[in-house]
Design a protein around this nucleic acid. Structure first.
Lengths: 160, 160
DNA sequence: TGCTTGCCTGGAGTGCACTCCAGGGTTCTA
DNA sequence: TAGAACCCTGGAGTGCACTCCAGGCAAGCA
């Protein structure tokens, strides 16, 4: 195990639980299992099997194990990665940028700096988006307030 | 003036400034002018002229005045509307839903209830998105923290 | 043994939100 | 009054992120 794909993987197993306590929650998944079919993963993640195969094709996934007949067998590690990708997707990050991050992860530890930069840029984007949304919320509240008032006023007076 | 297109328009001119004081800020625009060419509006809003024409085609804009030669002349009211549309766009609302809202506005005052419902649904979406983004922020901070630590540790120890 | 279900692949298709084009008229500045 | 810059229209094209299809292999089971 030389390359880490998500942060908690880098931590030795004996100290793992402590760190995971502060780590974000993972996708719900059955215990004691580490090999899932594509349809199981689709059910866990909410993505379609099509999308999972497509993610692999474009280089967004690490290498996925295969059964002796060639069917995909996803590991818990893959599920972690998909969980993170899901978060990035929520930020509106283009898939191409996620692929770039995935490439950095595959490239090894010497890309830590680049990875951090990319995540920090994403972080700034997220903060901007939150601010925009809060701004929008204010506008919505203003308008909703207007319509609420209008509903309380007699129909003939007020807006016109 | 029987139909209001944005809330502040419904308020008589003499009481307007009071209400606008609590209203969200508008697009910056020159004073004492109420007719803008499409390229001026493009500059104010950040949209392209193409997009502005397309918005009109799909029914997202109210009727836009024309000069005697047929060129569009946008009013301050149109700019207000575009500002609001911009906010809705930030929420990720599909254009089709915005068109629906625009239709309600065109339909008249009896759609106040529907408009309010639509805005309240949007408000709920916005709150959900903000929560998702804050969640994502936590994940990003966790990972950024990891990479920051890794940078402070000697290369040979730590992650592996 | 046949049937259903699930999975595989490369490649084509879809929906959304623009974005551009061709061909032509209008407005501004020198 | 000429040339550049701007604006008009209908319709076609683009990029993104999936989404689906055809044709075929493999496993479970009645």
């Amino acid at each position: 195990m030389t390359v880490m794909e998500t942060t908690d993987r880098a931590i030795p197993a004996d100290t793992r639980t402590d760190v995971c306590a502060s780590a974000p929650p993972r996708h719900p998944r059955p215990d004691g299992q580490d090999a899932y079919t594509i349809s199981e993963v689709a059910a866990f993640t909410g993505l379609t099997a099509h999308t999972l195969r497509w993610y692999e094709r474009i280089g967004l996934m690490p290498h996925i194990d295969r059964s002796h007949t060639g069917q995909r067998r996803y590991s818990n590690r893959d599920l972690d990665w998909l969980g993170f990708v899901g978060k990035l997707r929520l930020t509106g990050m283009p898939v191409a940028d996620m692929v770039r991050y995935a490439e950095l992860v595959r490239a090894g530890e010497h890309t830590y700096g680049d990875r951090r930069e990319l995540l920090e840029a994403t972080r700034r984007d997220v903060l901007t988006r939150i601010a925009e949304l809060q701004d929008t919320l204010a506008v919505l509240d203003f308008k909703i307030g207007f319509y609420a008032d209008a509903g309380r006023r007699p129909v003939t007076e007020g807006a016109r």
